[in-house]
């Protein structure tokens, strides 16, 4: 198989309400514009009630399976530390990782029955060395004056991994998917994220 025919696998993980689904929708619009076949799959249903949310995102010349094969993730984009760690085994040995520093406590931790995992970044660095990128998406979004824009900040940071994809595709996607009154904020969030990595 030629290199450009290979399918690229992106795994997004987070917690319901963090906006991971919008982030994956932006990626969808971007890679279609870049001329790729795209498939993405997510499990809905109970995510709104604080459960974990994952999206399998795949692009390439021709994509068959909507879900990524376990262990075949090229890029892990995680919105939350514990939800990054939960999927560490899915990443290829040379895979790249973007971890957002937000921590959202699951019930067993809130109730004092379990510990929130410590040293998530170090665990990733142990296996993936320089391919681990940590970003404070919440901090950047806070500086922009809207915590909700965290997801687009992360998309901005993540866009650095695809230097051949035009920035304009990302801006177009944001404009297509969000209401006009949110365009300015989210374009700023995208750019701030893009600079942060």
């Amino acid at each position: 198989m030629k290199k450009d025919e290979k399918t690229t696998n992106i795994f997004l993980s987070g917690v319901g309400g963090q906006g991971a689904i919008l982030a994956s929708n932006i990626l969808g619009e971007v890679f279609i514009r870049a001329g790729y076949d795209v498939k993405k799959a997510e499990v809905h249903g109970m995510a709104q009630r604080g459960g974990d949310v994952t999206t399998h995102f795949r692009f390439g010349k021709k994509v068959y399976s909507p879900i990524i094969k376990y262990g075949d993730v090229d890029y892990l984009l995680s919105f939350e530390l514990l939800e990054a760690l939960r999927y560490i085994n899915w990443v290829k040995p040379d895979g790249k990782i973007v971890i957002n520093t937000q921590e959202i406590l699951p019930p067993s931790v809130s109730l004092g029955q379990m510990q929130y995992p410590k040293g998530v970044e170090d665990t990733f660095k142990k296996y993936f060395k320089n391919n681990v990128h940590v970003i404070n998406g919440m901090g950047i979004a806070k500086d922009l004056g809207n915590l909700q824009a965290q997801n687009v900040v992360l998309v901005g940071a993540f866009s650095n991994f695809f230097p051949k994809i035009k920035e304009a595709y990302f801006i177009d996607a944001i404009k297509k998917l969000l209401a006009p009154k949110l365009h300015d904020l989210n374009i700023k969030a995208f750019e701030a994220g893009r600079k942060a990595l």
Partner: peptide, 12 residues
């Protein structure tokens, strides 16, 4: 690399 069953679950 990490046993997922050792991590706190996040049920709805």
């Amino acid at each position: 690399r990490v046993k997922p069953e050792d991590l706190p679950r996040r049920p709805p």
